[in-house]
Design a protein around this nucleic acid. Structure first.
Lengths: 121, 121
DNA sequence: CGGTATCCCCAACGATACTG
DNA sequence: CAGTATCGTTGGGGATACCG
């Protein structure tokens, strides 16, 4: 049996690396957390909530998350267009892990910043 | 009180974004998990375990982790040089969250890959 | 409204060579 | 052994304009 280190080191086929490459990008985790708090949102609603994201990056981020089966995209054939996004069950099973990581981050943010400053000297 | 969305969206001061920017880079999480399994390792030992990382990237990754207070660097003043790296208590409190994320990743890797293939069609 | 298309830039990353 | 220094590439990401 392969040990964990071999798995981690195999960048292309490593599950955690594949998942991290997705949620570790600039916007994916943020989009997931936003959708988690709001149940269902339209494209421009997500855009407004995040604010600093460009239309292009929001579009590609949503497409990537959809490709991974983490969000559902529902198109209403009306004019003007209406598109709704919501989390899938798969994403909902991921959310607790993201939130526990977020919790750790909040608890350790101040000391980490202090460490960085001390190190910079 | 600020709600979570405001915190997440404030990219510069958001704890989770700051932490993700570190562990979400190409090598940091891998290095943390490697050190977690081996207690203490020298520079070239980490290099050999990971294999595909360049000396330069290992060096900067270790420096970043040290700056965040996640690893300790101990230099022995001998010739040839000997430098040991180990996790700090702070990193050890992070490891469980990383492992639970890794667990989710392993459980969902196959279906996610299948979703990606279907989406590519 | 919900996107694409296009152009551009910079920082991350790798390869190689060198050093105390 | 444990790194720096230097150079070159590439692709992630932003700005802007346009479209069904």
């Amino acid at each position: 049996m392969k040990n964990n280190l071999e798995i981690y080191a195999d960048v292309d086929n490593c599950p955690i690396r594949n998942v991290l490459d997705r949620i570790g990008d600039k916007w994916s985790m943020l989009v997931l957390l936003v959708l988690n708090e709001s149940d269902v949102l339209r494209f421009n609603e997500i855009h407004k909530v995040i604010g600093s994201i460009s239309q292009k990056m929001l579009s590609t981020t949503l497409k990537n998350l959809e490709a991974d089966g983490l969000i559902e995209r529902e198109v209403y054939p009306v004019i003007p267009p209406k598109v709704e996004y919501r989390l899938t069950a798969r994403a909902e099973s991921l959310i607790p892990h993201l939130l526990s990581l977020a919790e750790w981050a909040k608890d350790n943010f101040i000391p980490i910043k202090q460490s960085r400053e001390r190190f910079g000297s």
